[in-house]
Design a protein around this nucleic acid. Sequence first.
DNA 1: CTCCTATGTTGACAGAAGAAACATTACCGC
DNA 2: GCGGTAATGTTTCTTCTGTCAACATAGGAG
Lengths: 185, 185
Amino acid sequence: MYTVSTYHHGELRPALLRSAAQLLEKRGPQALSLRELARRAGVSHNAPYRHFAGREALLAALAAEGFHRLGEALARTAGRDMGEAYVRFALEHPQLFRLMFGGQLRLARHRELAQAALQPYEALLTVFRAQPSLADAEKAAAAAWALVHGLAHLLLDGHFARQATDPAAFARAVIGAVRFASRPG
Amino acid sequence: MYTVSTYHHGELRPALLRSAAQLLEKRGPQALSLRELARRAGVSHNAPYRHFAGREALLAALAAEGFHRLGEALARTAGRDMGEAYVRFALEHPQLFRLMFGGQLRLARHRELAQAALQPYEALLTVFRAQPSLADAEKAAAAAWALVHGLAHLLLDGHFARQATDPAAFARAVIGAVRFASRPG
DNA sequence: CTCCTATGTTGACAGAAGAAACATTACCGC
DNA sequence: GCGGTAATGTTTCTTCTGTCAACATAGGAG
């Protein structure tokens, strides 16, 4: 009934994740259906359930991968360029970024995801703690994260379409417009 | 065949929007289906199509309404409290906020929505332009928007769950940790 | 009163998620 | 090698959704 050699895909999980990532960026999250992924892997429509509890679990896995990649991207940059790196990541993988931060996946429900999601703040915190002149490194790191995060979101959504002909340059300028409160005295 | 007095609902469009808003906040965007709304309005499953071109159009209308409400909320506050008001709005209507800024609705496709979406920045810009000491009011306004926007998003997503036992207070503190570059000299 | 247009209704279709029951393969102890 | 068991895929079925097309009703303009 089946060709013997292809009954088992063998690499289904990674294959699914790979085409999921592609499909996500190309057609958005709505177009990302388990069945479509199964089709692309040349496998029955229910096979993915052997590897993911459901659609949401697959998305969570994708997002977790995204957090790791973002963490690495930030770690590769020197302290001051982190903000731009953050925005660049978002602009390069818009749909992935939205999946990660779109609120559709609740962190509490996916341990792996919650774990992965800690990376960006940790990375920022490390840098800010190294600056003793700051009044409050934690608050400053939080503010920095919020700033670049909001900037990324707003750029993606096109809210700065007029002001930002060159998004990267715009991001640099906006980030440059901000100072952090320093220790009194 | 039908009870004469109920064939026409009479207030269907607003009724749909109202229960859509409720359902959105209560069960999230996935649970918001046109059919469910029709059911709640006591109307056939296709009646909503007389008032909205499709699901996306209804979501766009909801989001546009959200932008107007946000704009009004900002306008009601004095200059310095705008940031907190912005965050408060997000925390009070998390799903609506995500709908507005989740990137699922493309501004370019819904004129009314694109128009409504201009309000927040305009409101901020007005305030920042009134401060002549600033080096660049546009950039500062953009930075302020990004800051509060990112803060709202991160709080909603639970990324500050540890640091922010009281989200409003945390927001105040983070916003307070930021200064804007002032005119040299 | 008649006709037109707004608004709702019915019925049908394709596509999706997911559950259940079944088939095939791979691997491990012997 | 060999047989059993767990892992991986398949089929089938149910339920839900968005959307289209054809039809029904209500209420106002003439």
